[in-house]
């Protein structure tokens, strides 16, 4: 629900116009609906976008679990909470696209599911948590880039590219925190 054009952003944040709640919802709806335009296979797109939502659910859960683990310093916790906010925005944008396509966004799993699936029991310190997060973010950036050619519309391509950009940003921050060297070769993601 955060896919606003510059025009919309101006309307929302400059305070030069008043926007009713109904008007805001209509604008968000039209933004999500744009993801449907031109899709010649909405059922397929729903399947793919729901898989992306499942990935975002897991990312949100991972940062929530990490924040409550007691393994992170306050500064690192703050960064993780910020990243979790980004993943929530991703989830909401993807859910809007799925709804506009006539589908139902996939629900999140229980925290216990994510604790087991992510192998949280093996995490012993902050570096372990950061390495897990780096792996998830790197994988997510690659996944979104690999997903683009399978999606139907330009709007969906752009949405996936936006997600990939955010995930790559997260990965860069996490890699820096772990002291990882800057890659020598370019074209670091996708392929």
């Amino acid at each position: 629900m955060t896919q606003h054009s510059p025009t919309r952003r101006n309307i929302l944040f400059t305070g030069t116009q008043t926007l009713s709640a109904a008007g805001l919802m209509a604008m968000m709806g039209s933004s999500a609906a744009s993801a449907y335009q031109g899709s010649d296979n909405p059922a397929q797109d729903v399947q793919l976008l729901n898989a992306a939502i499942a990935l975002e659910h897991e990312g949100i859960a991972a940062y929530t679990i990490a924040a409550g683990s007691g393994l992170l310093t306050p500064d690192v916790t703050e960064i993780g909470v910020r990243f979790r906010g980004h993943h929530r925005e991703h989830r909401d944008a993807l859910a809007s696209a799925v709804t506009a396509l006539g589908g139902t966004p996939v629900e999140t799993e229980s925290e216990a599911h994510y604790v087991e699936a992510l192998g949280v029991a093996s995490l012993a310190n902050q570096a372990d948590v950061l390495r897990l997060a780096l792996g998830l973010e790197t994988g997510a950036a690659n996944a979104y880039l690999g997903l683009i050619p399978s999606l139907s519309t330009a709007e969906q391509h752009q949405l996936a590219a936006q997600m990939a950009g955010d995930e790559a940003y997260h990965a860069a921050i996490l890699g820096h925190a772990l002291g990882e060297p800057i890659p020598v070769a370019g074209m670091m993601f996708g392929g």
Partner: peptide
């Protein structure tokens, strides 16, 4: 780098 966004060897994830 690529598959483990959604997959693991021994656990079902996304």
């Amino acid at each position: 780098q690529r598959c483990m966004a959604c997959h693991a060897l021994d656990a079902n994830r996304a």
